[in-house]
Amino acid sequence: MHGKVIDGKESIKYLGIVVDRGFLFIDHMKEVRRKMAIMSGRMRRWTGRDLNVRRECVRIIYERVAKPALLYRVQVWGARVNDSRIRRQILAAQRPFLLVISGAYKTTANAALAVLAGVAGVAPEAAARYQEWMENGREKNRARVTEKERVSPWNAGRVLEKCDNMTEVYVDASRTNDGRMSVGWAYEEMNEWKQGGERVEGMKDINEVEMTAIERVIERSEIERLRVVSDSEVAVKIIQKARPNNKRAVSILKKAEDRQTRGKKTWVEWRKGHDTGNEGNARAHAECERAVNDEEIGWRGYMIRRKKKEG
């Protein structure tokens, strides 16, 4: 290609998996065996006179470190686990650990080593995990993409629509040193400013409070063409990128999607704040300053990176 010779290879490593010709995964298991030999050699030194690590500790290290490495991406190569060549490589990779844990002679059979070490064979577990993946794993992955609280990255462009003659609602957020938080909003209608604010609780940083302000406006507004203007560039980028692990962003897009089903358009954008002469943001900021001293809490939110509960 372009005057250069491209040499063919029998195998290629991709995302930690060695894929060989024919998808036999024998080269992959050989690579795993090589890594396990290095790891078991280090563990053997730990049980010597110098460190004198208890064998029970070595067993824990094997279960938590070595075995997950042996079973890495079993969903890919598990279909070949019954191949005698794959099983031999698995047993050869596991055997050094069993010798260290059990303290038995090197001539001890593999089956006896497993009993003495109190460790189950890796090959049967690999087969069971692959079978479970074939039965349930694909459906779980499909559900993770389509479940209601998750939004695919491309959904933001479909849900958030920018058009002409949109009513701009400015939002701002405030957080004091003692942890009191508030949100405010302001918009102009018929040459008259309408604005409000409320104290909120439960957010961990100012960007999340800003996203809460955006969410509250989208949730409450009946404006046909709504443009929410925030002075938090970080909050707006999180929403526009539709990061599925950010529950607040997902919640905002779901509310925008609900508005879309009712024929209403929603857009979120960033502009510099009240310090630059932004009158709308200045009015929203003033509402934040007023609401932060309220005794009544208008809205409570909880940790957004886990399943969110709101009251």
Rank of each mutant, 00 (worst) to 15 (best):
L98E: 06
L71D: 03
A112C: 14
V292K: 06
A114I: 05
W185H: 07
G118F: 12
A112Y: 01
D258L: 13
E168W: 01
A112T: 13
R271P: 12
N110D: 13
Y62M: 00
Y72F: 14
C288H: 03
K9I: 09
V171H: 02
A112H: 03
G311I: 05
W267Q: 08
E295Y: 10
K9F: 02
V228R: 03
M39F: 14
E222H: 08
D205T: 06
G118S: 10
A104F: 04
N278E: 09
L91I: 02
D294E: 15
I26E: 02
T266F: 09
V159K: 07
M29L: 14
N207R: 10
V234Y: 10
M303Q: 10
D205W: 08
R225I: 10
Q75V: 01
G121I: 00
D172W: 08
V53C: 09
V122D: 02
R142M: 05
K247L: 06
N82K: 14
R306F: 04
A109V: 04
F23D: 06
E189L: 10
I304A: 12
P153T: 09
S102K: 02
K254E: 11
G22R: 07
E296N: 07
I297R: 03
N293Q: 12
G16V: 14
V19G: 00
A112W: 02
N278V: 12
K265W: 09
G157P: 01
K255E: 14
Q240T: 06
A291D: 03
R150L: 11
F97D: 01
T146L: 07
A186T: 11
S84E: 04
G280D: 06
Y105V: 05
R305W: 11
R55V: 03
A213M: 07
I218W: 05
C57W: 05
M181G: 05
D50Q: 15
G196T: 00
R199M: 06
V32E: 00
G137A: 01
K35Q: 06
H285K: 09
A92E: 00
D20M: 06
W193C: 11
R227L: 15
A127I: 02
K106P: 00
